[in-house]
Design a protein around this nucleic acid. Structure first.
Lengths: 160, 160
DNA sequence: CTGATCGTTCAGAACTTTCTAAACGTACGC
DNA sequence: GCGTACGTTTAGAAAGTTCTGAACGATCAG
């Protein structure tokens, strides 16, 4: 099982930084990058640690959130070790999770409205709009996004 | 210019935490919350600092990104001080900025493809899909989101 | 049963981010 | 001009995050 080449490692690191900018952690990005480009279909935790030059502890702690976010897949282990690979449609899932978090915003806004007196119309207006927007993204966009992405991909595929 | 009441402060803090979860900083959220609910139409930097119990330096450094993200508006100052208020459609803008960042992901993926040999079809497939998804969100979703949000809001308004 | 291999957990180290206080530059009122 | 009020910048403190090494529990081969 060969580790990444120098060029591949540069890609891995750039991907890690990018992932950081988008709200994840660097290591999560690096793992995801390596899983995308490595020769093998899947990688064990120990292999990941070796390939990325990172402690097993790091991988272990970071990969759980990745599973929950729908980015990585842990396969029923052949042998006793766990195998990880990129989940199909992983990034899509990630965005959906992000959108779902907007519900929290709606809740907080609701609380704010309960705090604010009935007389403060202008402020209530602002808060209500914020709440609606959070609801909108949480409820509508998540699903809509998926179907539109399928369309987009299909169109792109047809061109080839 | 009264500061926030105890209840209002709780809202402000909860909003700050929520903002943190969604990728911003706590202080940004607290500022935004206070701008939404404070009695005055706008607040100077000094007023913000006093109301939130935070140093002026903090506000000053944090509010610039907020302006750039399209969250806060700096008004042509009456007197010599600057006045801030929530930008109309602020959160929408913020999401759009977030989406625009996906372009970086597309670039990195493109670089990855240039690194990967032509023979590694499976890996290239994964990378290409990632790139396409980044492009899709950056190009299409940002605009689409806006129009759909307008529709949603209009519908919501009609109900009242 | 014994030794080897693997993933997990925990305490502490290294690093980053965020905040503050103090010094500074500028504009205004007098 | 001189003092005052305002926002900005910078260096350093405080807090939080992420990583590592070591100890541990579990599983399998022999």
């Amino acid at each position: 099982m060969p580790g990444p080449t120098a060029k591949e490692l540069e890609f891995i690191d750039r991907f890690g930084l990018c992932f950081e900018k988008l709200g994840g952690t660097r290591t999560m990005g690096r793992i995801y990058a390596w899983l995308m480009i490595c020769g093998a279909q899947q990688q064990s935790l120990t292999e990941l640690a070796a390939a990325l030059g990172v402690s097993k502890a790091s991988i272990s702690t970071v990969i759980r959130p990745m599973e929950e976010a729908g980015l990585a897949l842990r396969l029923p282990a052949p042998g006793r070790q766990h195998s990880y690979r990129v989940a199909p449609g992983g990034v899509t899932r990630m965005l959906q999770v992000q959108f779902a978090r907007m519900r929290l915003g709606a809740e907080v806004a609701e609380f704010g409205l309960s705090v604010l007196g009935k007389d403060r119309a202008a402020q209530r207006e602002r808060l209500a709009e914020f709440r609606d927007f959070c609801e909108f993204t949480a409820d509508e966009v998540g699903q809509e996004l998926l179907t539109r992405w399928e369309q987009y991909r299909a169109k792109k595929r047809r061109k080839r």
